[in-house]
């Protein structure tokens, strides 16, 4: 059991080591990176906005229920929505969702290329396939996913606003006052650290799962499930570690 995990970890490190080699032709890697950025960024924008809108709304509703009948002033709701999304919900939930969307997509794309001998064909040409297929995806994710997370945090705050102010639970001024209270920029740093780490985890793990796929469509399906499951577990583990270290 343990030896299996070690085997995967070792092979993962080897793939990443090869992926970080110098590109054969920077322009080709650049072109592929922009294509990936487009896929990841534009392709995920709608779902990220939709999910964060509801997360902000739910957070606000839950806290207003819990604060009901206590001495804590209601404007704290704005403050709580802002901080809980920035610190935890925006990076974590966004990346868990992206693991399901972007990660599974990457692993089945690379896995399909492995099965149809596209990777072999590139190897024969002399292409460093671990580099060409993995590195652009990781770079694209490291740039685009933190942006998506920032958008998610912003939209969540709007979601909380809509849930509170439109229903009349809280006044416009109170919510805004809460959102502007007790701001610590360290929290934003933490959000970006998480976003970058999670983005790295979900792309590299998904690429790994696809890159070493064997067999047929059943294995391809398994690889894409594994990509999501392992990314999710590792993201949550990393979340815990970052929280322990940075707070």
């Amino acid at each position: 059991m343990i030896s299996r995990q070690l085997y995967h970890f070792g092979r993962y490190l080897m793939m990443m080591g090869t992926a970080l080699a110098r590109p054969e032709r920077t322009y080709m890697y650049y072109k592929e990176t922009t294509r990936q950025m487009n896929d990841i960024g534009i392709g995920s924008l709608v779902i990220v906005i939709l999910i964060s809108l509801f997360i902000g709304a739910v957070t606000a509703v839950q806290f207003s229920y819990q604060l009901d009948g206590t001495l804590v002033p209601l404007y704290y709701i704005g403050y709580i929505v802002r901080d809980s999304t920035i610190i935890e919900l925006a990076p974590t939930i966004t990346c868990l969702v992206l693991a399901g969307k972007v990660g599974s997509n990457m692993s089945s794309e690379i896995g399909g290329m492995r099965q149809k001998e596209h990777i072999d064909a590139m190897e024969i040409m002399g292409v460093n396939t671990a580099g060409y297929l993995v590195l652009p995806k990781i770079i694209a994710a490291l740039v685009v996913i933190p942006l998506l997370v920032a958008i998610a945090a912003f939209v969540s705050v709007i979601g909380g606003y809509l849930a509170m102010v439109l229903t009349g639970s809280l006044s416009h001024n109170d919510y805004i006052m809460g959102v502007r209270s007790f701001f610590k920029d360290g929290n934003v740093t933490m959000m970006f650290v998480k976003a970058i780490v999670f983005a790295f985890i979900l792309t590299s793990v998904s690429c790994y799962q696809g890159y070493y796929v064997k067999g047929g469509s059943i294995e391809l399906g398994k690889a894409s499930t594994n990509a999501v499951v392992f990314s999710d577990i590792l993201i949550l583990l990393a979340d815990y570690l970052i929280a322990s270290i940075l707070t």
């Binding site: 054969e24 032709r25 322009y27 080709m28 290329m113 149809k116 001998e117 596209h118 072999d120 064909a121 040409m125 002399g126 292409v127």
Partner: peptide, 23 residues
């Protein structure tokens, strides 16, 4: 290759040009 292994996201021209672009 047995199944030709043409890259399906690229046109015929791009497929043939790929090694030239790369190397």
């Amino acid at each position: 290759f047995q199944g030709s292994a043409l890259f399906d996201s690229m046109s015929v021209e791009e497929n043939i040009r790929f090694p030239l672009d790369m190397f």
